[in-house]
């Protein structure tokens, strides 16, 4: 087996890990702040990708503006849904939030399948990022390097914003104790809407990044959320940094599995989840409540 193949698959793993990281980070923010298991997280990823495809094909707007506009659009839609529908189930058991977002996912996915069918649509790699670097032991396409770089920057940027800035402190306060935070004059409902927007924007951003790599299709986010669930279970809900590290590691392991045992590569994340549950049920970075 050549090192080309191994490193090639590792890069693919790293790319997947990048998407897992962005999505599970958004997922973790939403579940931490709103207590909502957002099953539609993969749908917003799809919306991000489809948004950039629409911008290009209907309006002629290219990759770079789409990188901002498409996640923004996803965030706006997400905030609208949060304001009008999701906020109505906060007082109920968490199960209802999960089921509500499941219904929304089915609705949005169904609408896109109805209008665009399930066939994949290509999205060109932006001109500036075509070509690649010859590293000697392997060939690294520029765009892939860019995706990993951006994912790392965004993940750690978000982590920094939440852990070290004033808005992050407010968000954490609202997570810990919404009543008390409200008593300090902070508009918690608006903060929740904002948090939901940030969470789905990260998914939408991942979608735009994914558009040139995978073909754009209404089905693209459907199974992703299950992987995100596994990532969150493995990492534990305790720390944001933990879930980022877990996402990248699981992506890498999945890439490695594609070299060693291709038939099982789809399952490797779930097998790891099983082992973690049996050994450390609270997750690697979580703590038993």
């Amino acid at each position: 087996m050549s090192s080309q193949v191994i490193f090639g698959q590792l890069v693919v793993g790293l790319i997947n890990g990048s998407f897992y990281a962005l999505l599970s980070l958004g997922f973790a923010i939403i579940v931490g702040l709103l207590g909502i298991i957002n099953v539609a997280q993969g749908t917003f990823y799809m919306l991000g990708a489809f948004g950039s495809w629409m911008l290009l094909n209907y309006l002629g707007i290219g990759y770079w503006p789409a990188l901002v506009l498409s996640p923004l659009g996803a965030a706006l839609l997400g905030m609208l849904l949060e304001k009008t529908l999701i906020s109505r189930v906060y007082h109920l058991d968490h199960i209802y939030g999960l089921l509500l977002t499941y219904g929304l996912m089915m609705f949005i996915m169904g609408a896109f399948i109805y209008f665009y069918a399930t066939a994949g649509r290509p999205y060109p790699v932006p001109e500036e990022l075509r070509g690649g670097y010859d590293l000697g032991f392997m060939f690294l396409p520029k765009y892939r390097a860019w995706v990993v770089l951006m994912a790392v920057v965004f993940c750690f940027g978000t982590w920094y914003a939440i852990e070290k800035t004033a808005i992050g402190r407010t968000l954490r306060a609202a997570t810990e104790n919404p009543q008390l935070t409200r008593a300090f004059g902070i508009n918690v409902p608006a903060l929740l809407t904002f948090g939901f927007g940030v969470g789905v924007a990260l998914a939408g951003f991942a979608g735009v990044m994914a558009a040139p790599i995978y073909s754009v299709s209404p089905l693209m986010g459907g199974d992703l959320v299950i992987v995100i669930f596994a990532v969150v279970v493995v990492g534990g809900m305790g720390s944001i940094l933990g879930s980022i590290v877990t996402a990248f590691s699981l992506g890498l392991l999945e890439g490695l599995a594609k070299v060693v045992y291709p038939q099982g590569s789809n399952m490797v994340i779930f097998v790891i989840m099983l082992v973690v549950l049996l050994v450390k049920p609270a997750g690697l970075f979580g703590h038993e409540k």
């Binding site: 529908l85 189930v89 109920l92 509500l100 929304l104 996912m105 089915m106 996915m109 169904g110 609408a111």
Partner: peptide, 19 residues
């Protein structure tokens, strides 16, 4: 008609209106 859309809509209605 798109089955998935209808099912999604019923899901949302069930959760919001008659649990």
């Amino acid at each position: 008609l798109p089955i998935q859309m209808v099912i999604g809509a019923i899901f949302v209605l069930c959760i919001l209106v008659f649990r």
